[in-house]
Computed example of a mutant assay.
Amino acid sequence: MAILAQVAAKSSPELTTGIQGALDFRRLWPRTTREYLDLKLQRSSYWLLRGDRAMPILRPFHRNHRRMQEGPSSGYSSYAYLRDREYAQSPTHFIRAFMLIQDDLKSIFEYVEPSEECLATFSYRIHELLMRTCMEIEANFKAILSENIYTPKFDKWHRPILNMHVYRTIDVTHHLSAFEVILPIWNGTPRVMCPFECWKSNQTPSWYRAYNESKHDRQEEFKKANLDHLISAVAGLLVVLSAQFGVEDFSSGHDGLTIGGHQYHDGEPAIGGFFRVKFPNDWSDNEIYAFDWEDIRDDPNRFSKFNYDAL
């Protein structure tokens, strides 16, 4: 087990946390059981060592939804941890804010047709909704960092520096740049958006620049708060939520029975049921979750904190 810890120390902070989780989990058991777990961890597919890399992750990170390793309980485990009250602080607070924004966007669509011809449309209502949407994205980013490990730098007025450059580090853990969002109700071919794809080339999303510019200089930049940037920003908010909660909306009702089959639209129904989403398929083996939630759900240390300071 010490070898595994040494391997992790030379690898990614994500891997270090995963192996440390296994070590912590092991200490909860009697000695004979620990000896069995030692052998199991070293021999099972959960701990394949390739060079200086090990995989995968045995405890979920706070506010970080990922692909699950296939297994007998992977279907249940892939969503059950999202409903644990220790996973995220006040998740419904963030979901409700998105639902209101989505409803307001749908109201705008009652007057402005979602189409290529109308993308340059701008108004005070569109400007207001763009402001709210981007502020909500920032609130989600702050929640992700604060519930994991992140020590902000401070400006000369001793205020924490939190900006898009800082938030871009979240792409390492959440793969925001690999999400696709589909808006099915489009006059023409349904619009497909990748709101954070530009992060792959270290660029700032155009919709976020429009938000900042029209916020700080509305007189000159008002027209940038247009329908195009608004739709992209709402899609960006949906991506950030989906990367934390999957399609879980924390409804008080019962789970519905889903019947598989051919879908008219690409992707799968997203939170709120208005957009559709395609989740990332670029997770490497050492990034995926591989826990059985039944085994760890009563563990007081069932969640990990990702160390963003180590990036």
Results as ranks from 00 to 15, higher is better:
11 S>V: 02
186 W>Q: 03
11 S>G: 03
88 A>S: 15
232 S>H: 15
39 L>A: 09
268 E>I: 15
238 L>C: 12
286 N>F: 13
216 H>C: 09
305 K>T: 06
96 R>P: 03
46 Y>L: 00
121 T>V: 14
10 K>M: 08
255 D>G: 07
297 R>S: 00
299 D>P: 02
57 I>G: 00
81 Y>Q: 00
35 E>T: 10
192 V>S: 08
53 R>L: 11
80 A>Y: 00
282 D>K: 10
69 Q>G: 01
56 P>W: 05
161 I>L: 09
113 E>M: 02
85 R>K: 12
111 Y>F: 13
238 L>Y: 08
135 M>I: 15
128 E>N: 14
311 L>C: 09
238 L>S: 12
83 R>P: 01
218 R>L: 13
239 V>L: 04
254 H>K: 07
36 Y>C: 03
229 H>E: 11
206 S>H: 08
31 R>N: 07
272 G>Y: 08
211 Y>G: 15
52 D>I: 06
202 N>F: 05
102 Q>L: 15
220 E>G: 05
82 L>R: 08
154 F>G: 06
76 Y>I: 00
25 F>M: 04
168 R>P: 03
270 A>F: 05
8 A>T: 06
283 W>G: 05
299 D>L: 01
30 P>K: 03
214 S>E: 13
107 S>E: 15
22 A>C: 09
227 L>V: 10
52 D>M: 04
132 R>Y: 06
25 F>I: 01
213 E>N: 14
201 S>T: 13
55 M>I: 02
16 T>I: 03
